[in-house]
Amino acid sequence: MTKTFKGRDIISIHDFSREEIEHILKVSKDMIPAARGEKRNLSLEGKILSTIFFEPSTRTRLSFEAAMNRLGGSVVGFSDPEITSLKKGETLADTIRMVESYSDVIVLRHPMEGAAKLAADFTEKPVINAGDGAGQHPTQTLLDLFTIWTEKKDIEDKNVVLLGDLKYGRTVHSLAYALAMFGANLTFVAPEVLQMPKEVVEHVERQGGSYTSTNALEDAIESADVLYVTRIQKERFPDPAEYEKVAGMYRVDNEILTNASKDIIVMHPLPRVTEISPEVDTTEHAIYFKQAFNGVPVRMALLALIFDVVK
């Protein structure tokens, strides 16, 4: 059963049924011409979106702002916690109650888990979670799903390899859950110390999802339709030499991609450091910049649905 999107908070991917996600993907596809600026859509004229970013972010904030502007709306906000009320000791609850009087929808990024849920408790305006600590980042998951769906025409039965920091990388947790919901076949490739956490694996199992774990990337990508790469963060390793060893093991370059199908797509939530060689950028496998663009139509679709200007 699909609930109405009107006025709804977007806190966690777990709040959505498969039907609801499919609906969001379809609306996102319809938004592409306006997202590219090829078609005018002023359906949110007069509406104000606030971006409340207690942590820096480039893609998420810019694509939300682009999405709102493409729909004719306006944006207010901040993205520098150094100069905000947080520094003065204001609670998030108070910040939200202040911001709600200035805008019609609130997009929040915060370093603490559960911040978006808390924010939603303190305002009647819809709150969109743009990342809460190591918690949820549902719009990233939606744009990842949208990318696979548009590039591969379907998600069900696709072989998806999730590579890199599967322990701390928040995007892969929500994505694994959602892919399992859609019936994709998952392969987790990670160094021993950065394997997928048990609770995420349990979530995948509860969705009836199939998965395998390996540390051999060459084997894993042979039958893969999608290779989803994440950054391995240096600070997770007490020993820099250990980091270099692990990071080197999982560098995606044209050589390793010779083991893969010619149709494999390589995705990355960005920013990347060295995990994907720049030589891959010019191949047809590289989808990550298109994936970053997809943030715009997906966020336009969510805004249009929340404001009830599309059904």
Binding site: T91, L92, A93, E113, G114, K117, L118, D121, A134
Partner: peptide, 13 residues
Amino acid sequence: GNPNCVTNANEPV
């Protein structure tokens, strides 16, 4: 038990 949970910050909740 999660030290980074927002309920462990000074929020009125």
